[in-house]
Amino acid sequence: MDRSPAVRGRGIRKSFGDVVALDGMDLDVGAGQVHGLVGPNGAGKTTLLGLLLGLAVADGGSLEILGTPVGRTLAVPEGVAGFVDGPGLYPSLTARQNLSALASLRRYDAGRTTGVDDALEQVGLTDVADDRVRGFSLGMRQRLGLAAALLTTPRLLVLDEPANGLDLAGKQHVHRVLTGLAAEGTAVVLSSHRMDDLAALCSEVTILATGRVVFSGPLSKLAAESGELDYRLLTSDPEATRRLAAETPGLRVVPGRDPGQRADADIVVRGPVPALDELVVRLVQAGVALRELGPVMTPLEAAFLALTGTGAEPAQTDQEDL
């Protein structure tokens, strides 16, 4: 049997008038992989998701989805599902009616689809299946959108900010569903501004900036390429910790904090992991208790800021992307 990656894009270009949304980007997504898309607003994430769903075609380059070259609008193969810019739901219909209508449109027969009830159960919406979507919260709508995608038993699932508005339980539902799908071989392309979600779910990420790929690969590679990170320490003796950190080769204390103000104030140091290990040894030898130690931001966040040149915290909103 002929086999190919779920997504294979080479030199993809897409412009809207004078605005270049995608500028020769490459993308590879394998089956069973959860692939994250990260980038500041206007980076081209939504455009790329639109191409994957068949809502638009690239102006240049090549794009193969599930082994089929995509040459015209809405000509993606069966097995592609998802949503971009939020799930499309009809507020005057119930959750069940929304899904049933979609199932009817796509002519899903019982033999090859997850049933409406199963989909609702997977995302934890069984109890509100017969409620009108008008009264749903943002998180419930996101989960219903995911349920709609599940109806197709997709082989490529494209999701735009699926964690928006989710509470902890909803987030767990979504994570469980996505990891379950990936385990069954479904490729998931996930765009999000929430780095914690991406870090928890994705095996690979692509970071976009102004339509170009600035990083693509496994998270471990990203961490290695991130170089020096900031770490926060909370110890029993902040003064001694500052002194020991300053004496540790390769490590420096990040200024801007005044440990004298609070006895339990934290200290931020910057340096490679081996230098941090050395500091821990020295703290123990000096009899200073180490209460907390962790990165100030995840490698993904650090890489995002470094590679995209934004220099600011990633947005936590669902603002419309290009």
Binding site: D2, A6, V29, G32, R107
Partner: peptide, 20 residues
């Protein structure tokens, strides 16, 4: 190495007008 999926037979068919 990138994992692969089975090649589908054809593009997704449009929904029937009656269903729409």
């Amino acid at each position: 190495m990138t994992a692969t999926v089975a090649r589908p037979r054809a593009d997704a068919r449009p929904a029937p007008v009656l269903h729409g």
